[in-house]
Simulated scan of single mutants.
Amino acid sequence: MRNKHKHYFLGVLLILALLLGLAGAFLHMNTYQPTSSAKQASQHATVTKNVTTFKAKNSKLTLVFYPGGLVEPDSYANWAYQVSKEGYTVKIVHFPLNLAVLAPNQAKQVVGPHEKYVIGGHSLGGAIAARYAAKADKTNLKGLFLLAAYADQKGRLDHSQLPVLSVTASQDGVLNWTNYHANKKYLPKDTTFSTISGGNHGGFGSYGHQKGDKTTKISNSEQQKQVAQILIKWLKTIKN
């Protein structure tokens, strides 16, 4: 009887392992990959298990970034490299299966104990970054930025003095605009809002067309340039 139960238990484990493997393979096949230009820009970064880092000379502040769901970290290398050249270190955080929701506190693994930083993310990554910011010690955390993303109730900062930047694109066909506008109530009243005219959801990274997105009216290189410029302008206002 014991052997029978043992074989049954092993069979269940084998089936579970197979299902997990299939799920992982499915997610991998549906993960957005960086374009050739993003891959080229990523050559300027150092990569470890938890983070891709674009180190700035005499860094003024660190920008910690949570990628969008099922998007490879290097897909954001173009604007990240541009920002780093202006004196801000950029750390693109790695997540299991490229889903920030699976490790929402991963920022703790990439930020030093005395390192001053802002945190933000794209799409799902932005929502999770907002949740992190809402609970984090504000001693070294100096701001939150959201790219085609919004804070939910778990990430509410409406009573916080934390500087917040929210950037959207006019051709975004993925962002839930109803929720975006409704959830502005969770952000500080002095939040900085910016819109990239002609840009779309996928254009906040460089990974090609995203399912459900609208056609962009500007090039990806142009949107990447504008993302970098908007971030740099905002970062210059941060007091650290």
Rank of each mutant, 00 (worst) to 15 (best):
K85M: 07
E86V: 05
E86N: 09
E86H: 12
G87H: 02
G87V: 02
G87E: 03
Y88V: 00
T89S: 08
V90F: 04
K91C: 01
I92S: 05
V93T: 01
H94S: 01
H94Q: 09
H94R: 08
F95A: 07
F95L: 08
P96H: 04
P96F: 00
P96S: 08
P96G: 01
L97N: 02
L97F: 02
L97C: 01
L97D: 00
A100G: 09
A100H: 09
A100Y: 08
V101M: 07
V101R: 01
L102K: 13
L102T: 14
L102H: 10
A103S: 15
A103P: 13
P104C: 11
P104V: 12
P104L: 10
P104R: 11
N105D: 15
N105I: 10
Q106F: 10
Q106S: 15
Q106R: 15
Q106N: 14
Q106K: 15
A107C: 05
A107H: 06
A107Q: 06
A107S: 08
K108P: 04
K108E: 14
Q109N: 14
Q109I: 13
Q109W: 12
V110D: 01
V110F: 06
V111H: 08
V111L: 09
G112M: 06
G112L: 09
G112H: 09
P113K: 14
H114P: 11
H114G: 12
E115N: 11
E115M: 12
E115V: 08
